[in-house]
Design a protein around this nucleic acid. Structure first.
Lengths: 205, 205
DNA sequence: GGCTGAAGTCTAACATTGTTCGGAAAACCA
DNA sequence: TGGTTTTCCGAACAATGTTAGACTTCAGCC
């Protein structure tokens, strides 16, 4: 039931439609608040106040706070999927090094766009929480899709992928921790791409 | 008052010595519990129970939970300083690439040794907390020391350092998140070192 | 030795959290 | 209209960090 927003609306009664709409409002309020307080600082009572409810009423729409996190997590990965699709289209006619550099830069900016989203997707910022199996499945799908795109850019095989992941996520983490609104590490994206591809070539020899 | 454990004991009254000793016990209990629950899951009441006290009694030794985190943070960086000193001694007669590879590997293992320490030092795992100025100063000192050592290994200038930091911390983050007790990313340390140094050489041309 | 004051410890309490329960209102369907 | 389901709320529970106030313990001084 994670992809409520994409459910075929012709099959829905007015009641179900209103239910999904309220769910949407709650999610939006949660994202808004999490952006200010950090994902771990999210408070259900504040979310409720934001949408004009009392806290227990939220339980009509989400089984628990963890379920709300689950929905946010899956939504983040769906957005990542869309972004990746855009990037690969936008990068199709570049040389591999330029293409990879662009993708890394865009990836860091995707992380910068929303700290809350970055925190829930890529860090363990929420004490005790981890995605449910359904939510995890969404993320795994997007990872596979991304891995396929990277293969086309010359990053192939598990070792290459592990190294690429470390570099890209490391750049993003440093960017967000030390220069959240700037581009100090974004600027290094082309260099990092060149570095990775050169090293892959070296190891192939 | 962060370096209580290193205060000259000849100047201390029996009472102060006992005070420091109890502080030490509390810190040890905190590390032990944080290792199980994650740093963000640390509960003062549990810490108190672990040392045979009631929660409010802890406030004789730490002004707040944040002050306890501060002490742990500074202690972590002091341990890092010791470790770095050992590494550089141990690596003195290797070639730069081997030396850097070893250092990166040891660095990742240092992070693996204690998840709680890793979380408080390098992630923002604690909602709302950040190190006090005194604690931050300790970390800044160690970073400068580390930067000096890296310079000797061929990583010089702010750009090199930024890229190195991203790669090393990225490797550690992936290791801890996806294979906390294994060596899937540790094994990549020599490759990463070689990759970094080759790229630095390329950019120097 | 006994007084003084600080240090250590406790219980009680407060505000805040996520969550559950039970009932009232509202919306829907017959 | 009557019956059922959904929605919403107030009260309450357990757990959290923290404070206030009282009691004990203990070192130092006349």
């Amino acid at each position: 039931m994670l992809d409520f927003s994409q459910t075929d609306s012709s099959e829905l009664t007015a009641r179900q439609r209103r239910h999904n709409q309220t769910r949407r409002e709650i999610l939006d309020a949660a994202w808004r608040l999490a952006e200010q307080t950090g994902i771990a600082g999210l408070s259900l009572r504040e979310v409720a106040r934001e949408v004009g409810m009392q806290a227990p009423s939220l339980y009509t729409y989400f089984d628990s706070k963890d379920a709300l996190f689950d929905a946010m997590f899956a939504e983040g990965y769906r957005q990542l999927g869309e972004a990746v699709a855009e990037w690969t289209a936008q990068v199709g006619d570049l040389e591999p090094a330029d293409a990879l550099g662009t993708v890394i830069g865009l990836w860091i900016q995707f992380c910068q766009q929303s700290i809350a989203r970055y925190q829930i997707m890529f860090t363990r910022a929420i004490p005790g929480w981890q995605p449910s199996e359904e939510a995890y499945a969404v993320s795994a799908t997007e990872y596979q899709r991304m891995a396929a795109e990277l293969e086309a850019l010359g990053v192939s095989g598990p070792e290459d992928l592990d190294l690429y992941t470390a570099v890209a996520s490391g750049l993003a983490a440093q960017q967000i921790a030390n220069d959240p609104t700037g581009d100090r590490w974004v600027r290094l994206a082309p260099t990092a791409a060149r570095m990775l591809l050169d090293d892959i070539a070296r190891r192939r020899r």
